[in-house]
Write a protein that binds this DNA or RNA. Structure first.
Length: 584
RNA sequence: GCCGUUUUAGCUCAGUGGUAGAGCACUUCCAUGGUAAGGAAGGGGUCCCGGGUUCAAGCCCCGGAAACGGCUCCA
């Protein structure tokens, strides 16, 4: 048997062992479902109220069951018989699963018996529980989870198990989690003073500290630089609009709960939850000829969404979101060219960030439930086909994502991996025939008739806040030079060297290098330690030796040694790296 | 929003119903230093908020907020 399959079986059997342990300790618990996941397995229970402090005794019970060991046996029951058995036994969740299998055309189902515990299960499992090492797993977390993942259903109690082949693999996994925690953007954001959250300001409303703003602005500037020679125009839109705007667009009906309402003296407004309707009004205030198209608007714009409190998180899920938003108004025959231009920008941006490796693209289409979407079937196939064709022409590694479309149109969603392999949905290109219809947008075609433009919605970084959170973790706080808040730190050995440090700092500043001088009344060792912890790109300790020498002694981030370089060469090196947005 | 956990000094955290603590940071003084923590003194508290129990609450109970781990959602 393949090693992977064996691990899968161990995890699967562990889910059953977990269920056995829970039933032994809490006989009234009702079983729902217990599948295998990437890092182990989980089991969902109803009629079970647990605290995290209950997990150790469940874990202990599981080890006891493994120690007793026992062969695993299985058999098959006709589906009607199985259903009757579960219904008589009062297992409502198992009965529901069986009824679904019945509807799907199954005629029989299998059962597995592990020790004394029987469960409906399609298998496969280990042959004997003795195959599972008692120290190869641990219970990691307790969570609520809706039955069948549907919010309308009852919330069950879920216990997660981390499970691997052996203790070494388990420890490696747990260790990786600890490493991931070290680069958590919330932790680094605090340590490096990049951003701040204030309970007084509000939940989901982080603020940029000066050092965080340097990074954010560098990204925003770069994004505009990537667009300015590609026919884009900058626009600006206010942060409020009358409800009628979103009633027209359909956002009010779709996202009503999540729009912030602003009450004026006489009128009420919504804080804008997105920019497309505003941009469409800018487009609409012109008489466009087909010769003018495409029209391309770009605006890094802050929008506001009243997200449910439980889903707010650091910078990655906030209530004030700054999108690097752009809307292209074009003819149908221009879609592919425009998509290609955007794909080019995306590739360039993510190459610079060192994230283009192993990316993939989801062609997000309409799901089966068409009531969730605007517009006719014809228009949707037109849009979906246009995007698929563009994906093929641009050699995008794409897969279909049914049900993942926006309510007004299909999308190409770009999924990138960060430096520790986590995947993020970032850039997006969306093809929209519906909002132009709703806003009655038009241009005059070659025949002198009014024609409806297509709108392509696109974002490269997605949101500046979220993207910042992601690159903080991607770089682990060790930003490439062009993004580093402090590019050069000067450490004065003693008071007598401060004047020279200031003079040197001014020369760096004139060369557009971000420099800081540590003049504090501390030992040199302590000042060096602080500079290292701040993750500055380059550090120069300035004392008598440097005063006497024409060369600089530079200590680069990540190195414990210094190198000797002339002032001019150093400046050239820095300016060159910054201009190229070099990753190293 | 739902399930679970957490909330004590600027930061990281200890504190077991009986006078509010440590390390780092900060201020002052001494030390004038050479590539990851020099020494001393000092200042700093709405123990998340609101109720309750108790002679007495940071600690126990109830309600709420926020953060975190999940679930759900994500234009």
């Amino acid at each position: 048997m393949e090693k992977q399959d064996l691990l899968h079986n161990k995890r699967h059997s562990l889910a059953h062992v977990l269920a056995t342990a829970v039933l032994e300790l809490y006989p009234e618990a009702q079983l729902a479902i217990g599948p295998v996941i990437d890092t182990g397995c989980y089991y969902d229970f109803d009629n079970l109220t647990l605290k995290e402090s209950d997990l150790p005794k469940i874990e202990k019970k599981m080890r006891g069951i493994l120690t007793r060991g026992g062969a695993v046996t299985s058999w098959v029951l006709p589906i009607a018989e199985a259903l009757a058995k579960e219904e008589v036994g009062g297992s409502i969740y198992k009965a529901e699963l069986i009824r679904d299998l019945q509807t799907a055309g199954e005629t029989e189902v299998s059962y597995y018996k592990i020790g004394v515990f029987e469960d409906l299960c399609k298998g496969p499992h280990v042959e004997n529980l003795s195959e599972i090492a008692g120290d190869s797993f641990c219970l990691t977390k307790l969570a609520g989870a809706y039955w069948r993942g549907n919010e309308k259903n009852k919330m069950l109690t879920r216990i997660y198990v981390a499970a691997f082949d052996n203790k070494t693999d388990l420890d490696a996994y747990l260790n990786m989690m600890v490493e991931a925690e070290k680069r958590d953007h919330r932790k680094l954001g605090k340590e490096l003073k990049l951003f701040t959250v204030s309970e007084l300001v509000g939940s989901g409303l982080p603020m940029m500290q000066p050092k965080g703003m340097i990074i954010r602005q560098a990204i925003a500037d770069y994004l505009w630089e990537l667009h300015k020679d590609k026919g884009y125009d900058r626009v600006w839109t206010p942060h409020l609009a009358k409800p009628a705007l979103y009633e027209t667009s359909g956002h009010a009906a779709k996202f009503g709960d999540e729009l912030f309402k602003v009450q004026g003296k006489e009128e009420s407004f919504f804080l804008k939850p997105m920019n497309c309707p505003h941009h469409m009004q800018i487009f609409a205030d012109n008489q466009w000829s087909y010769r003018d198209l495409p029209i391309r608007y770009f605006e890094p714009a802050t929008i506001y969404r009243d997200e449910k409190t439980g889903q707010l998180a650091g910078l990655t899920r906030v209530r004030a979101i700054t999108q690097d938003d752009g809307h292209l108004f074009c003819r149908v025959d221009q879609i592919e060219t425009e998509v290609s231009i955007v794909v080019g920008v995306i590739r360039e941006f993510y190459t610079t960030m060192g994230m283009l490796e192993n990316y993939w693209v989801r062609l997000s289409t309409r799901g089966d439930d068409h009531s969730k979407y605007l517009g006719s079937d014809e228009v949707w196939s037109l849009a979906e086909n246009a995007l698929e064709k563009s994906a093929k022409e641009n050699d995008l590694p794409y897969r279909l994502g049914p049900g993942e479309a926006a309510f007004y149109g299909p999308k190409l969603d770009f999924m990138f991996k960060d430096s520790i392999g986590r995947e993020w949905q970032l850039a997006t290109i969306q093809c929209d025939f519906n909002l132009p219809e709703r806003f009655d947008l038009s241009f005059v075609n070659a025949k002198g008739e009014k024609e409806r433009p297509v709108v392509i919605h696109r974002a490269i970084s997605g949101s500046l806040e979220r993207f910042m959170g992601i690159i903080i973790e991607h770089f682990g706080g060790n930003f490439p030079l062009w993004l580093t808040p402090v590019q050069v730190k000067l450490v004065a050995v003693s008071e007598t060297h401060i004047a020279y440090c200031q003079e040197l700092a001014n020369r760096f500043k004139r060369a557009d290098i971000r420099v800081e001088v540590d003049t504090s009344n501390e030992t040199v060792g302590n000042k060096i330690r602080k500079a290292v912890n701040e993750k500055v790109s380059h550090m120069l300790v300035i004392g008598d030796k440097e005063l006497a020498s024409s060369d600089l002694q530079v200590r680069d981030r990540g190195s414990r040694d210094t190198r000797s370089i002339s002032y001019d060469d150093f400046i050239t090196e820095l300016q060159d790296k910054i201009a190229k947005r070099s990753l190293t």
